[in-house]
Design a protein around this nucleic acid. Structure first.
Lengths: 218, 218
DNA sequence: CCTGAAATGTGAATCCATTCACATCGTTCA
DNA sequence: TGAACGATGTGAATGGATTCACATTTCAGG
């Protein structure tokens, strides 16, 4: 059974919740507990967990340790990935420090930038290289994933260079869609668009806005 | 007809594409042109544009100026929104400068932070206040939207305070889901989760959940 | 051991988004 | 002018994700 992108996304968040923000002394968790924490329905949670090959026990719920373990198995079926931040402007640098301390399987090992000022320096503990050394460094460091934080006007051009250099996955923060050949993984995060979406639903009283509705109760 | 969140998201991106990254001398645009630029199908584009109340002409496509104008009408049905960045760490600051120069209808007018070091200073041109002045400042400045960039451990607590202070919309960058009362707009951007998703599809040769060369916005 | 309560796993139903297919229409050119 | 082309708008078909509903399982307590 193949796991859809949406399920994937939720699995990563279950894991984050359980490993980092869940009481250490609770050994079991119910689907409806996860559901209220995440903001959706219990049957949704159970469906998602079904594709793990691990099953809870009725009346008892899921064993937290086992659950995390099985999510790891599915999600990190891969090896460790080496990641490069491409575009070391404000956003790029913020992401370096934000992601720096995170999962051990995703290591940020390099940054690239067009600006020669930044080349060959350490930025937030990450070595920064000139853009035209991308291919060389990527090969040498075994970099498979790029986080793209360049201005929209440069996004496609830089992407093309990354593709030539052999990138396998891209997380795109540039505010324009980019085109890539099939076979390369792509996720796009458009901050401006997200903000505009919030603004839209903030005023329009009429429409039923979004998925999640929970009371701030515990 | 109510506009779904997904359509909304694409409309903002059509607009960005047309206003900022489209040849100024092209007066018309075809659905299939937008489609290849955005990475999805032409009928998708036409469906989306249908809810604008503006119609293209066969053989000629859509008049760019009119199209932008009608997207504006639908998206900015609202007034200007005043936005606060909550949590002035690395990510918060990066977003301030990243979003600072953007759409005039979304103005970042304040930042809040628990750290007393940061209070009453200008950060990237934005005045920063202590968290406990949130209600006062929000009222005074007419702030309706918050961009939440605090650590996961503080996210729910800070959210509750914002809610009490009367926030109307939240864009959440904290890596945990937050719960809010009905009637408040919410969008969540989980960078870690997005990166993990890319990593997953980067290795797993098996599943091909991405249909076309481009993936949709989350 | 038996009964009841409470949770699970899952087929079926529902809902929503996307794509297909085509009738329709404006433009262009013979 | 009118016929052919190439694009649109949209009903219907498809496909995917979510929810419903319930049979099933497990545990607690008498």
């Amino acid at each position: 059974m193949s796991i859809s992108s949406k399920v994937m996304g939720r699995l990563t968040r279950y894991r984050a919740l359980l490993t980092e923000y869940f009481p250490k002394d609770k050994l079991h968790v119910f689907s409806h507990e996860l559901a209220t924490m995440m903001g959706f329905s219990a049957s949704q949670v159970r469906r998602d967990l079904m594709c793990l090959g691990y099953f809870g026990v009725p009346r008892y719920g899921y064993e937290v340790k086992e659950l995390i373990h099985h999510i790891n198995d599915v999600l990190d079926a891969s090896k460790v990935h080496h990641v490069a931040v491409v575009g070391a402007g404000n956003l790029g640098r913020a992401l370096m420090s934000f992601l720096g301390s995170r999962r051990a399987t995703l290591k940020i090992v390099a940054a690239f930038d067009d600006d020669p000022q930044l080349a060959n320096r350490l930025i937030n503990g990450v070595p920064c290289y000139a853009m035209d050394r991308a291919e060389e460094i990527m090969k040498h460091q075994g970099i498979t994933i790029a986080i793209l934080c360049v201005p929209g006007s440069a996004a496609q051009r830089v992407t093309d260079r990354l593709v030539i250099a052999g990138i396998k996955g891209i997380l795109n923060f540039a505010p324009v869609p980019i085109r890539i050949p099939v076979g390369i993984a792509l996720e796009e995060i458009d901050v401006t668009s997200a903000l505009e979406r919030v603004a839209f639903y903030t005023t329009s009283r009429t429409g039923t806005p979004k998925k999640r509705r929970n009371s701030p109760q515990e």
